[in-house]
Design a protein around this nucleic acid. Structure first.
Lengths: 252, 252
DNA sequence: TGCGCGTTTTGATCCAGATCAAGGCGAGCG
DNA sequence: CGCTCGCCTTGATCTGGATCAAAACGCGCA
């Protein structure tokens, strides 16, 4: 997409833009140009939050867009009696809380310890208004999120428990390489085992993502293991043993 | 939103912009300014399609954005074995197939007879590129669609059959006033019964929307009726008898 | 007017996944 | 250490919704 610009080094050196922000800018998928990154960095605050933090509970975060620099965050919708549905899972680097989106009834909670960058919403929106290209990139991103949500709708509405788990594993594969949870960037080290991943979620959270109970998640994992499609070295570390069969178990 | 501009009459009279297009422009929620409407009308083709038409099957529609002028359309995702999940229900006036969205694995099928306006995708995108404000409005619309999809995720992932049906009815209420299916615009006639609606979908389609079978849809409708929350004059025409209890049956 | 077909209702039965229950395992910690 | 507290597994049972089956209801059409 964007040229790997030599301006980066210079940017990192200037004023308020730290190296991490540069990484974020790159990692977020060329969302920001160096100039946009600079403008946004100028009005932002960096924080570290422990696992389990509800970000929307912190008052001044409610009015911020949040750049996720490190860690994993779950976005859920809740029913009054406590039932919840995880609506999307965000891993660094990503952006939480789109500019221009009305506040909405969601909970945003750190799954792991996380480093975040808080951008006051109105300031972010002001930057967007000045940068036509940025709005276009945000627009495209919203459309991608929509497409992801639709895929999850199909999973929740029409797939069996086994198919949901297989779908979930394929979705996670590649996203969470082992021991990289909490790391800032995926280095492209060829030594990495592409078929092994560390799940960032508990069984209960996977259930909240897939519309199942944690017992069913556990049992279906056990079944997929028995059938030789996957294996576990411990509860969180999975290896995909037979991608082809796993894919067919996901029901297309 | 937009000022009710006196330019309309003039626009309607000029060249290629017909009165219906003006209505579409207004109805779509101020998506287009008169000038944008004119530009888009200049490159579009109007068609009428019978109920059941698969729009994405028509080759040149695959590369179009579709303005829905009259009728109801369902957007679904399919599994190879025929299971399907309706991902969104569009009623006139609305826009199908967002500019810039990658083609994606969806089926778009007319539920009722429909009048549509086909805008070649690249031409639409060209217009958008020239109109900063239009892209912003499309961006906001994508965020709304995303929010709707998230609400449906909660419904599919965590609600019981009864809650799903109650949620569905509240969602439809107001959207489909009786005998207005297929009409072009909702006139604000105070005589209308605000609590009665004509369902545009069959029981099977409602099932495909809510992740249920048509038998379960039928039975839960019967149960809600027995409990006095709703009533049917025929299979398609529902009246909400007790909105408060229906809302609580929807599980918030 | 009666036929045929898609839709809807309702009944009977089945089963995938929920619920209830009991241990086990591992990590932090006094 | 040994304890506690989350997490995870596994078993037994229950149940909401699926599946299978049949009949009734329109509605367009000959």
């Amino acid at each position: 997409m964007k040229q790997p610009d030599p301006e980066d080094a210079a940017v990192a050196g200037t004023s308020s833009l730290c190296p991490t922000c540069v990484e974020w800018r790159c990692g977020v998928g060329s969302l920001l140009t160096p100039d946009e990154a600079r403008q946004i960095a100028a009005v932002s605050v960096r924080r570290q939050v422990p696992a389990g933090t509800e970000l929307m509970a912190t008052p001044n975060l409610r009015d911020s867009c949040i750049a996720l620099l490190r860690g994993v965050v779950k976005v859920s919708r809740l029913l009054t009696d406590g039932r919840q549905q995880i609506v999307s899972l965000k891993s660094a680097p990503d952006l939480l809380g789109a500019p221009f989106a009305p506040p909405g009834e969601v909970s945003v909670r750190a799954v792991t310890e996380a480093d975040i960058y808080c951008v006051p919403r109105h300031a972010f929106e002001a930057v967007v208004r000045q940068n036509r290209g940025l709005e276009h990139r945000l627009h495209l991103r919203a459309l991608e999120d929509l497409s992801e949500a639709e895929a999850l709708l199909l999973t929740l509405g029409r797939k069996t428990a086994r198919e949901r788990l297989a779908t979930f594993l394929l979705d996670m594969a590649g996203r969470f390489r082992p021991a990289e949870i909490g790391k800032r960037c995926d280095t492209l080290d060829p030594a990495y085992d592409h078929d092994t991943l560390d799940l960032p979620l508990t069984r209960a959270e996977i259930g909240d993502f897939l519309g199942l109970t944690f017992e069913t998640v556990s049992r279906q994992f056990a079944a997929l293991r028995r059938d030789g499609l996957i294996d576990f070295s411990d509860a969180r570390r999975v290896s995909v043993k037979d991608r082809k069969r796993l894919r067919s178990a996901a029901g297309t």
